[in-house]
Each structure stands twice: as C-alpha cells, then as structure tokens.
Amino acid sequence: MALVLAFAGAVTLFLFQKIASRLYDDRVSQIRSLILFGILVVLPYTWWYADLITLALMMAGIWSILEKKDKFAGLWIGLGMLAKWFPVFLLPALIRQRSLKNIFQLTSIALVVVLIVFAILYVVSPEMTTASLMAQPARSSWQTIWALMDRNLTTGAYLTTEQRLDPVQSTIPTRNPPVVPPLLTLPIFCGIGIILLAQQSQTSDFNYLMNIGVVWILFLLWSPGWSSQWVLYILPLLLLTLPLSTGVLLSLLLVTINLIEFPFLLGRNVPASLWVLVPIRTLMLIIMLILWLMMPKYIPEQFQHTR
C-alpha cells in the first residue's frame, strides 16, 4: 500500500508540472511543482489515508480535459469517483468552458464506468454494496460550522472495523441529528454555484481550474463534514491558479490549521478547540472563494505565460 501511495504521489506531481507548464514558463512551473512536492513530502495525510490515489486520478482527469481528450477524461473521472466521489466536481466546472454536448459525453463516460463497477459489486454482494452507498448520507456532521451547530465535537471516524462488517450499521446515526438538514441547504448552494459559474465568460485553462476551486469551496461550505486530509485536493488548485506568494501563504496556513486540528488537538482529545479552528478554516475557505471569483479579471496582467 505504501508503494501504491508513493506512486500516486509521483503521478500527482508529474501531472501537476504538466498542467503548470501550460500556464507558466519552465522556471515558474518548476518552482510551483517543487513547492507542492515540499508540502506533500512532509504532510502525514499523504500516507495516513488513501486520498493520494483519488487526487492522482483527479489530476489525470484535469490534464485530459485541458488536452481535450474527453474519453480519457471520462475514464479517469469515473475511476476517481469509485475511489472517492470528489472527482465529480470536475464536471460542473466545465460550464461555459465546453458545449453542453461535450459535457454530456464526458459525464456519460464517467457514469458508465461507475455504474458498471457498482453493478458488478451489487451482483456479488447486494447487501454490502447498498450499505456502502447508504453510509455517507447517513453520517452525522463533523468538524464544520454545521457540526458546531449540531454539537458534534468529534472527528469523522464513526464506525469500528467490526461495525463496518455489519451492513445494518450503515444507516444508524451515531451522533446528534442536524439542526439544519443538508438536503435543505443543498438547493441553495447549487443555485449559488450555477449563478457564479454562469458568469464566467472567459474560456481558458486558468478559468477552468478556478471553476473547480469555486465548486470545491461551495461543496466544503455546504458539506456537513470536513476531514483534514481533504486539504490535499485544494493545494494543487491554490498553487496552480493564484500568484505564487498568495498561493504559498494560503497553502501553508491551511496545512497548519489542519495539522493543529488533527492530529495535535483532536488526537489528544481536545474537542473544544473546534470552536476556534473551524471558524478560522471556514473564513479561509471563503477568502479562497473570493480570490477565485476575482482572479479572472486580473489574469492578463498577472500571468504572461497563459496559453
């Protein structure tokens, strides 16, 4: 597993540099790649969790979309969604970047890959396959503003190994119910996302990458939960799209806040720290959203090597 994660990290860095070379000259793209490498190589989330695999597939999807290799993009996104659902965010970010026909084709390929694998799993074990799909929507909130409202001052770990083998456990809430149901706020955040993405008039690599960032942040602001390793998905976008000093500053601040949160404080059973750390992280996410919405206006001045 360590070798698989190391390979996924190498693929992530390789694809990051390929994407960066589309946006900047060789020197700048190498500097940004080295900064990402420096962060990832010391970040424990890269070997504590399997998210590097999803991130590598997500980066492969982004690279294929930028290269207009839609069939490969659909394949990588579909495989990424099987690892974790997050690569689906690459699809709505295509609004105003591609025609509806292209978006439909790419989405169809990704969904076919997902449906084929889940169909096979369902034939082999219908009970456990259904439980795996039901487990996420049934989870209580954790490590977010919503979790503070619900008084759920815990991490996202909610089932023991033994409980995971029992499909009945997948739909049993383990903490306080939501004060504000996620399904109630979902249409609001989706509507905001559609409005924001529809206003993006420029078609470029930068705009697409920033659109991914916008979709990501809206999801994180809506999501009832936050896991510290999810910072891995944000770092490449920050270092690819923002001015170098801004991207590095936000990356280091976000990583620092997450490490203080977990493992240092939550790992030592200090749940009250969430009352401070969660608002700080939420504020940072809002700042990132504002920057990604404002940056397209300044791209011609800030970046001279955009293709």
Rank of each mutant, 00 (worst) to 15 (best):
L3H: 10
A6Y: 10
A10W: 01
K18M: 11
A20G: 10
A20F: 05
R27E: 13
I31N: 09
L36E: 05
F37T: 12
L40H: 07
L40R: 00
Y45G: 08
Y49N: 11
L52Y: 06
L55V: 14
A60Y: 03
A60S: 15
S64G: 06
K69N: 13
A73C: 12
G78Y: 01
L82D: 07
A83K: 00
W85V: 15
V88W: 06
V88L: 15
F89C: 03
L91H: 08
L94G: 00
I95E: 04
I95F: 10
Q97D: 06
S99E: 07
S99A: 05
L100P: 05
K101E: 15
T107G: 08
T107P: 00
T107C: 06
L111H: 03
V112N: 06
V114A: 05
V117E: 08
S125R: 11
M128C: 01
M128V: 00
M134S: 14
Q136G: 06
R139Q: 10
S140K: 02
S141N: 09
L148D: 05
T161H: 08
R164H: 10
L165E: 15
V168M: 02
Q169L: 11
Q169P: 02
S170D: 08
P178T: 13
P178H: 12
I188F: 13
G193N: 06
I194W: 15
A198S: 14
A198K: 11
S201D: 14
T203A: 09
L209M: 09
L209D: 04
M210L: 08
I212H: 03
L218V: 01
L220M: 15
W222V: 06
P224K: 03
P224L: 07
W226L: 09
V231K: 00
Y233M: 15
P236Q: 06
L240S: 04
G247H: 00
G247P: 04
L253I: 11
N258M: 13
I260F: 02
F262G: 00
F262Y: 13
L265D: 03
L266F: 03
V276R: 03
P279Q: 12
I280N: 01
P296R: 04
K297S: 14
H305K: 13
T306E: 00
